[in-house]
Amino acid sequence: MTKFILKYLSIILSIYLLSIIINTIHIDGILPLLIMGLILLIVNLLLKPFFLLITLPFSILTLGLFTFIVNAWTIMIADHFVSGINMSGFLNSLLAAFIIAILHHMLQNMNKPSKPH
């Protein structure tokens, strides 16, 4: 359960930070941002495994970097279903995929207990 909560937090935090930094990403309020996080979690749960399976040869050729393209596709799909957020294209979605991955990794590392030396 904490994995989904950390992923949700990284999604909403990333999209919010990107909307502050990049003026082409528009958010109409907190509610569309929270809905975008839920929709993206559902899209990642249902469609992402299918996309990853289809694009497996490209992922192998690019040593896994093509998964960021798949993540950008899922963000674009979720953006289509939420009316209060406009990601304004593929490049913004790709940048969001990178930032979400980085923040999710940082949140996971903060959640782990530190090992004594």
Rank of each mutant, 00 (worst) to 15 (best):
L47Q: 01
L94C: 07
L41E: 09
F68R: 03
L65D: 00
F50W: 11
I54T: 13
M76Q: 12
H104L: 08
T24R: 05
A97H: 02
F50L: 15
I27Y: 07
L46N: 03
F4P: 01
L91N: 10
L107V: 04
L46K: 02
S93D: 09
G84R: 13
T62A: 06
I85M: 07
L61G: 02
S14R: 01
S88T: 12
L45M: 10
L47R: 04
I54C: 09
I15M: 10
I11H: 06
L46Q: 03
I5Y: 13
L13W: 09
H117S: 12
G84F: 14
P49K: 00
I39L: 12
I20V: 12
F51W: 10
H105T: 09
M87Y: 10
S83I: 11
F81Q: 06
M36I: 09
L31T: 13
I99E: 00
P57V: 11
S10W: 02
I42C: 11
T62E: 00
L52C: 10
A72F: 09
T55M: 07
N111Y: 15
A96R: 07
A97Q: 03
L95V: 11
I15L: 15
I102L: 15
L33Y: 04
P113G: 08
F4G: 03
K115Y: 07
L33G: 04
L107Y: 14
T74R: 05
F4Q: 13
A101E: 11
L53D: 04
P113R: 13
I5R: 08
P49L: 01
L40I: 10
L38E: 01
I39G: 10
I54N: 05
I77C: 02
F90K: 01
Q108I: 13
G89I: 08
I102T: 11
L41S: 12
L91W: 15
L41T: 04
L33E: 01
M36R: 09
I21R: 11
F98N: 01
M106F: 11
T74D: 06
T74E: 04
I25V: 14
I99R: 00
L17G: 12
T67M: 06
I22E: 00
A97V: 03
G89C: 04
F81K: 03
F58L: 15
I22G: 00
A78Q: 03
K115A: 15
W73L: 15
I60R: 01
I100F: 02
P49I: 02
I30P: 00
L94M: 07
I27E: 02
K3I: 09
L63R: 05
L41A: 05
H26W: 04
M87S: 08
F51R: 07
V43E: 08
T55S: 15
L33M: 03
L6F: 06
M36T: 14
I69D: 06
L94D: 11
P116T: 10
D79W: 08
G29W: 00
I5P: 01
L65I: 12
I11P: 11
N111V: 05
I30W: 01
F66H: 12
S19W: 04
D28S: 15
L61T: 06
T74V: 14
I100L: 04
L56G: 01
V82Y: 02
F68I: 05
M76S: 13
A78G: 07
G84M: 11
A72H: 08
L65S: 07
K3A: 10
H26Q: 12
L56C: 02
K115N: 14
H104C: 00
N44K: 14
F51M: 13
L56W: 15
I60M: 13
M76K: 13
M110W: 14
S19I: 07
L41M: 15
P49C: 06
